[in-house]
Simulated assay, not measured.
Amino acid sequence: MLNKKPKKPYINWKARLHEIIYEADTPAGKLFDIILLIAIVASIVFVMLESISEFNARYHNFLNIAEWVITIVFTLEYIARIISVKKPFRYIFSFYGVIDFLSTIPKYISLIFFGTQVLIALRALRLLRVFRILKLARYLGASNMLASSLKASKTKILVFLFAVLIVSIIFGTLMYLVEGEASGFTSIPVSVYWCIVTLTTVGFGDIAPVTALGQFIASIIMILGYGIIAVPTGIVSAEFVSQNRGNHGSPARIPEVDLNTEACPYCSAEKQKDNAKYCYNCGHPLHENT
């Protein structure tokens, strides 16, 4: 009777850890994401509750213990993400790496400082925990497309902002000449500030024209503001729709079986093709036994 060959290990522990952390196709990966999402939401709620002085005075010990538990969870997650990738520094200095670091370090920094003279600084450090909400972007599928749309339309948006700045300077200078210091337009910078506030339809009301000509110019600026608001929205929306369409002008339909949540252990590129052996971005093997 022939002896059966022992089964070859599918992947080593680092690759298995990478699969759990960076992918969501497996039960372990889904459970990891759910636990992390609960921790993030809970942390944000605790930060908000801590800002309420009455609640903080009554439940300070509970909030402190809960924050330490969440901080330890995020610390373990941060360490696990570093050791499970082939190039740790690429993750550490990436956008999500910096966010993960900022969301973990404040509680530890608070241990270094002591005394009443640093209470204001500690309060500012604790506010850094709100960066944890940016960790949620990792789990929003459409966020990558929105980021790409903003990046693709950045030149048009910059041109638009430059045009708005020119309009604000011209109308601000004009209002300074028409109204003058008696109406609160004490300088051109102050007049430009008023023009920006009016153009964006905010209207604080701290400065207002009193002459008929000034009010007429202000009316033009207000009407112009409604048209200007729609421009950046249209630019980004058009780019977003463009990226969501296929090569033939119709919405691209990618079968669900074509892509998955697998991430490359070298460059962390996501959405690899099913059964792919090499990363589409960097060309490195996706698995140890490849």
Rank of each mutant, 00 (worst) to 15 (best):
L213F: 10
T201D: 10
P189F: 01
L125T: 03
V178I: 15
K87L: 08
P189W: 04
F113S: 03
V98Y: 04
L111T: 08
G203A: 13
R123V: 05
D206V: 15
L161D: 05
L165W: 12
T211I: 06
A152Q: 10
S191Y: 03
V178C: 04
V190D: 09
I157F: 03
L111V: 08
F131D: 03
S153H: 02
T201E: 09
L140V: 15
L161Q: 08
S153Q: 07
E77C: 12
L76P: 01
T173S: 13
I169T: 11
V210W: 05
V202W: 12
L177E: 08
I99D: 06
Q215K: 12
A80F: 11
A212V: 15
P189Q: 01
R90A: 13
P88E: 07
Q215V: 02
V130F: 12
Y108K: 07
L128R: 05
A121W: 14
L102W: 06
I79S: 00
E77M: 14
I83F: 08
A142R: 11
F160N: 00
F185L: 03
Q117R: 10
K151D: 03
I207D: 05
L140T: 10
T75V: 08
V202C: 13
S168C: 15
Y78W: 08
D206P: 04
C195N: 10
R90K: 15
F93L: 10
L146W: 08
G180A: 05
A137V: 11
V164H: 02
L158C: 12
I166K: 03
I99G: 01
V197S: 13
S148Y: 14
L140I: 15
L102M: 12
V159I: 14
V98F: 09
S183Y: 01
T186F: 11
G184F: 03
L127Q: 10
P209D: 04
F89K: 13
L111P: 02
I99W: 07
A163H: 08
I112S: 00
R132D: 13
I79L: 07
